[in-house]
Simulated assay, not measured.
Amino acid sequence: METLFTIAWNSHYGLRQEFITPHSPEQNGMVERVIRTLKTNACTAIASRPCSTPVG
């Protein structure tokens, strides 16, 4: 359900809100790929940073 705030926000930024069936990743594949890429990049960045405390 759109509120007046979301309608004004979308209109101000030129966005169009589309509603899809819940729990259907095939309908929002691009967003799913972006989220997967962000998670992968975050995990890689965390894993590759040097440890601040010695281990062992």
Score class of each variant (00 low, 15 high):
residue 50 P to S: 14
residue 53 T to H: 15
residue 7 I to C: 05
residue 20 I to Y: 12
residue 3 T to K: 01
residue 4 L to Q: 09
residue 53 T to W: 15
residue 22 P to R: 07
residue 26 E to Y: 01
residue 20 I to L: 09
residue 19 F to E: 00
residue 22 P to S: 07
residue 33 R to V: 02
residue 15 L to Q: 07
residue 43 C to E: 14
residue 9 W to I: 03
residue 3 T to I: 00
residue 26 E to H: 01
residue 10 N to P: 01
residue 6 T to L: 06
residue 26 E to C: 03
residue 29 G to W: 06
residue 30 M to L: 11
residue 50 P to E: 15
residue 31 V to W: 05
residue 46 I to F: 14
residue 44 T to Y: 11
residue 10 N to L: 05
residue 38 L to N: 08
residue 48 S to P: 06
residue 12 H to M: 09
residue 24 S to D: 04
residue 1 M to T: 03
residue 3 T to S: 01
residue 9 W to Y: 08
residue 44 T to Q: 09
residue 40 T to Q: 13
residue 43 C to F: 10
residue 28 N to P: 01
residue 41 N to A: 09
residue 21 T to Y: 01
residue 30 M to T: 07
residue 53 T to K: 14
residue 31 V to P: 01
residue 32 E to Y: 05
residue 45 A to R: 07
residue 36 R to Y: 06
residue 46 I to D: 13
residue 43 C to M: 14
residue 36 R to I: 04
residue 26 E to R: 01
residue 15 L to P: 02
residue 45 A to C: 07
residue 17 Q to E: 13
residue 46 I to V: 15
residue 3 T to H: 00
residue 53 T to A: 13
residue 47 A to M: 14
residue 24 S to K: 03
residue 23 H to Y: 05
residue 37 T to W: 12
residue 22 P to L: 07
residue 51 C to Y: 15
residue 25 P to Y: 00
residue 2 E to V: 02
residue 15 L to F: 10
residue 29 G to D: 09
residue 35 I to V: 02
residue 7 I to F: 04
residue 39 K to T: 08
residue 13 Y to F: 14
residue 20 I to D: 06
residue 51 C to N: 15
residue 12 H to E: 07
residue 29 G to V: 10
residue 4 L to M: 06
residue 16 R to C: 01
residue 56 G to I: 12
residue 14 G to N: 10
residue 50 P to G: 13
residue 16 R to P: 00
residue 17 Q to W: 09
residue 10 N to V: 03
residue 21 T to Q: 02
residue 20 I to A: 07
residue 46 I to Q: 14
residue 43 C to L: 14
residue 43 C to P: 11
residue 22 P to K: 08
residue 16 R to Q: 04
residue 1 M to K: 03
residue 24 S to V: 01
residue 26 E to T: 03
residue 44 T to S: 09
residue 14 G to K: 08
residue 27 Q to H: 05
residue 24 S to E: 05
residue 38 L to T: 07
residue 30 M to K: 08
residue 11 S to V: 10
residue 27 Q to M: 05
residue 54 P to F: 08
